[in-house]
Amino acid sequence: MFWRALRRRSPWPRRFLALAARAVGVRVQIAGQPHGGDMFLLANHVSWIDILVMGGATGAAFVAHDGIARWPIVGWLAAQNNTLFVARERRGALSGQIDALRAAMLGHQPVALFPEGTTSDGSGLLPFKPSLLAVLLPPPRAVLIQPVHIDYGVTTAAIAWHGDEPAGTNAWRVLGRKGRLDVMLRFLAPFDPADCADRKVIAATARDAIAASIAQNAPDSAATQHRPSATPLPPV
């Protein structure tokens, strides 16, 4: 209520997400240049940890499937950070969800979307679902899209949550790991949605950029010997 009275976003959800990431052993580094203005982040999706990492690093509001709202702790933290929970099974609700997303974007808070719609094994990308990208055409204001590659490096396969693995089983497996978990947020070149003919072009442009980064930075790729310098996030 205090922050709403000041018409400012509370800093606590972002801090809590960052602290939660550190509590599970995650250490985040940044590669590339996060766009400083209003931004719509499109990222690959490997793990439930993605929400902690992206939220803690950027303060973004998420577009996430409504099942996350029922997750202990993570769901509550996501809700506090203005997450828009999307009912994937109710296609008739899409129009209202787009309206809600457009309203959120007008609040000058970064918005993050995992356009694959679910998690993958991290070795590549699933098809991007362009439906919610309709909110960007026409752009509600000077919003740029920035693709983000969430890169867990050599531990990707070990922490990825995909297939039929239950959420509790994955969480137990990830939390039971020894040592820290390094993750690189690779902020790729932003682009203007106004330059795209439709939402499918937006999805394809972002997907191509992230796919190229995955290929370039694969643990067994020669390109990993020439990775750009990274900046560790400061302690929360």
Rank of each mutant, 00 (worst) to 15 (best):
I214C: 02
L17S: 08
A134W: 04
W48C: 09
A93T: 12
W12K: 10
I159F: 00
L132S: 05
Q216E: 15
F128W: 11
S229P: 06
T155A: 15
V135W: 07
A93H: 11
G25Q: 06
G176R: 03
V183A: 05
K178W: 11
R8F: 03
D195G: 11
L42V: 07
L126E: 02
D192W: 00
R8A: 13
A197L: 14
A20C: 12
Q33V: 10
V28G: 03
R22F: 01
I150V: 14
F16P: 00
R15V: 10
V183G: 10
A218K: 09
Q146M: 06
V111C: 02
D208E: 15
K200D: 14
P130Y: 08
V63P: 02
R14M: 13
W172F: 15
T119D: 05
A100H: 06
L125G: 00
V143F: 01
Q216V: 00
F85I: 04
L181T: 14
G67K: 15
L133A: 04
P219M: 00
A112N: 08
P110Q: 04
M54D: 07
M54F: 06
G36C: 12
A194N: 11
D220K: 13
I49Y: 06
H35A: 14
H35F: 12
L106Q: 15
P115I: 03
T58L: 04
R14N: 08
P34I: 01
A212S: 14
P72L: 01
G56M: 04
I159D: 02
H226L: 15
Q80F: 01
A23F: 07
D99T: 12
V53F: 02
A222Q: 12
G37Y: 05
F62K: 13
G37H: 07
S221G: 08
Q216G: 09
G176S: 03
L101E: 01
S47R: 07
I30M: 04
G179C: 06
P193I: 05
Q29H: 13
V174H: 05
N82S: 14
R27C: 06
L185Y: 09
V201A: 15
V53R: 03
I68Q: 07
G176H: 02
T83E: 03
V135L: 09
L132D: 00
D50Y: 08
N44A: 03
L52I: 00
V53S: 07
P219Q: 01
G55D: 12
